[in-house]
Nucleic acid binder design. Sequence first.
DNA 1: TTGCAACTGTTATTAAATTAACAACTAAAA
DNA 2: TTTTAGTTGTTAATTTAATAACAGTTGCAA
Lengths: 233, 233
Amino acid sequence: MNARDTFKQLPHKTIERLSQYRRALLICLDNNKDHIFSHEIAKIQHITPVQVRRDLMLIGYSGTLRKGYNIQELIDLIADIIDSEVGINVGIVGMGNLGRALINYFSGKRHKLSIAAGFDVNPDKIGRTVNGIPCYECKTMKEIIQEKNIEIGIITVPATQTTSVAKKLVESGIKGILNYTPKPVEVPEGVYLEEYDMITTLEKVAFYVKMENERTADMARLRQDQGTAASDF
Amino acid sequence: MNARDTFKQLPHKTIERLSQYRRALLICLDNNKDHIFSHEIAKIQHITPVQVRRDLMLIGYSGTLRKGYNIQELIDLIADIIDSEVGINVGIVGMGNLGRALINYFSGKRHKLSIAAGFDVNPDKIGRTVNGIPCYECKTMKEIIQEKNIEIGIITVPATQTTSVAKKLVESGIKGILNYTPKPVEVPEGVYLEEYDMITTLEKVAFYVKMENERTADMARLRQDQGTAASDF
DNA sequence: TTGCAACTGTTATTAAATTAACAACTAAAA
DNA sequence: TTTTAGTTGTTAATTTAATAACAGTTGCAA
Ligand SMILES: NC(=O)c1ccc[n+]([C@@H]2O[C@H](COP(=O)([O-])OP(=O)(O)OC[C@H]3O[C@@H](n4cnc5c(N)ncnc54)[C@H](O)[C@@H]3O)[C@@H](O)[C@H]2O)c1
Ligand SMILES: NC(=O)c1ccc[n+]([C@@H]2O[C@H](COP(=O)([O-])OP(=O)(O)OC[C@H]3O[C@@H](n4cnc5c(N)ncnc54)[C@H](O)[C@@H]3O)[C@@H](O)[C@H]2O)c1
């Protein structure tokens, strides 16, 4: 089995972590470090050193004993695995608050991923640029997507528009969709879909905060009871 | 073991899905449906009906045979589990594009989770409101957080500021942090942390799009080869 | 009124992901 | 030179998550 086939079988979670490792490594490079230990990466990512070493084993990277991993080498290897050789173009549909925030954030961050176009229906936005990215009329989506070879679409329109926008993206030949609206979309086989809703994350945090609050309250009550019991002596 | 203790042991993934189920159910309610089948929920969430039934089993909810689950009942039960009885207040640090987008999105969406304050250092933003949420000076963070009983902090400042903002939040007694900046933060024991970086998600989509592209290319090549072989006869 | 199809609820099984265990090696300290 | 502490890389074990299997129930159609 060649290297490419090995990479195909990497666990989904490892793919996510590789992206995160690279992000952390890039920060470390800036602080002109050249090597890093598994436990250092682990600490940054809130995972265990073993997890890090296991992931690196899976991608076939070896560090130096007692010296750690060469940061630049590791960055390059991760790029070999997760980046596409030719680069991938991305389009954003919905140039509102979130769409613009995303453009600002992504711009120039990753060599092999470039936002090539924005789309909107609001005449005030069409024809203008955000951070150098032109905003096109939604009607021309199909032509622009094919012309600019855009393969990934990010949806940031009002939830009522999500379904129709997703349909249009698929018709335009998009290969992957990243949906940031709270309305789930359906895609045909062969189109890769990720959805993310910030409310879910916030509710999860809230749930565990609530649990912790209750645990603390229980413990306080327990201490109180014990105090009472002790005073019975 | 009482109900509350059962809920404490729910798998993390189930917690996330419960939040998503509720979101989907709320949409269904709007379309004045009153019952829903496991396979309908499953389709919306891109998971299997079995997974849905299993999650509902874990929270002890029973549907009606051949009729499905009562949407309102299920919404209420999910609320009992993941919402906090008294409600939880949230603060957002960094009222830029992303911070404002989040406020607009969250506002009024969830009864038991309310954004109570924004914080910024930019004098132009301090003292103003976004969607009714006041923006305070960062210096007053501790007082405001304690005064308004804010338990969760969302970080949306420039990455260079992440560490110091997180430190300040912890010092102010926050219980949970949701970090949307690409700089990982460290929190002490007892503070629940979630981090989300949109680049990771986008890179993941890009990776699987690339894989699919290569698979398609391989298949095309294979067909080509077979064609050639066949013509040898 | 019998049989079939459509669901639910639960247990069993499998798969994925994480964690533990530990051998092998190295640099520096004793 | 020998020991010790620190670190990698890998296999094994465990835990968590997802899927499959299936019994049981209901309503409807034949
Ligand atoms: N704002 C957030 O933080 C946040 C978080 C999660 C999800 N969301 C969701 O993201 C979406 C966008 O949020 P926002 O705050 O940027 O909203 P927004 O109103 O600022 O932006 C929406 C943009 O989409 C455009 N639009 C409307 N219909 C369109 C169509 N059919 N085709 C193309 N463009 C269209 C509008 O002209 C507008 O520019 C919403 O669905 C929101 O629920 C937002
Ligand atoms: N924009 C996105 O879509 C996106 C996505 C993921 C992550 N992020 C990250 O989220 C952060 C915010 O993005 P944005 O587009 O809203 O940026 P932005 O520049 O529009 O907003 C940042 C805000 O933080 C304020 N600020 C600066 N220092 C502060 C401090 N010490 N305390 C409090 N407030 C402070 C600024 O005054 C500004 O209002 C960035 O770190 C960005 O990388 C953004």
